[in-house]
């Protein structure tokens, strides 16, 4: 397998993983303290952006306003013993920003295609659609195998 095939395989693994999951764990940082929260996420086909929505009054939004560096964990664990062998987890590292302007419509479409029941939530003026510009993914499978996919 050459590197193109290997990368293509890893991208496919990520696409399948993301397509199969609705929720992810977001790590933000504020007040000198990491903070983890569960978010409903979506992704762009090229894997370069991850999307989630949050109300502006939340701690995570406050954190992101002061520190845009985030990590997002997406995994397919089933909470059984098989997870130790078969679960895949991807940690995305990047910077989060609120989606606005002309690009908003296309990201809203992507987000609501995955989470149609969140239409009302997303259309609320108090809700922000956030976009993570992914710099790299760490992909873990078979319990301890780790590969890094770097977005140039």
């Amino acid at each position: 397998m050459n590197k193109i095939e290997k990368i293509s395989e890893l991208r496919q693994i990520l696409s399948n993983l993301f397509a199969g999951q609705k929720l992810a764990v977001l790590s933000s940082f504020g007040n000198e303290q990491p903070y983890a929260s569960l978010v409903a996420f979506a992704f762009t086909e090229d894997l370069e952006h991850l999307l989630f929505a949050t109300t502006r009054s939340t701690r995570k939004f406050a954190n992101l306003s002061s520190e845009s560096k985030v990590a997002l964990l997406i995994d397919n664990r089933s909470n059984t013993d098989k997870d130790f062998s078969y679960a895949v987890a991807a940690t995305a590292l990047g910077r989060a920003e609120e989606v606005s302007g002309t690009e908003r419509a296309s990201y809203v479409h992507i987000y609501l295609t995955k989470h149609p029941h969140l239409r009302e939530f997303l259309s609320s003026p108090s809700c922000a659609l956030m976009k993570i510009n992914v710099q790299k993914y760490y992909v873990v499978n078979r319990f301890q195998n780790v590969e890094e996919l770097h977005i140039q």
């Binding site: 293509s8 370069e48 890094e148 996919l149 770097h150 977005i151």
Partner: peptide, 16 residues
Amino acid sequence: LSDDADPGFGLQARQI
């Protein structure tokens, strides 16, 4: 792994 690769991505094993 040949050096030909996807122009948008880089790959590195981190833990094997």
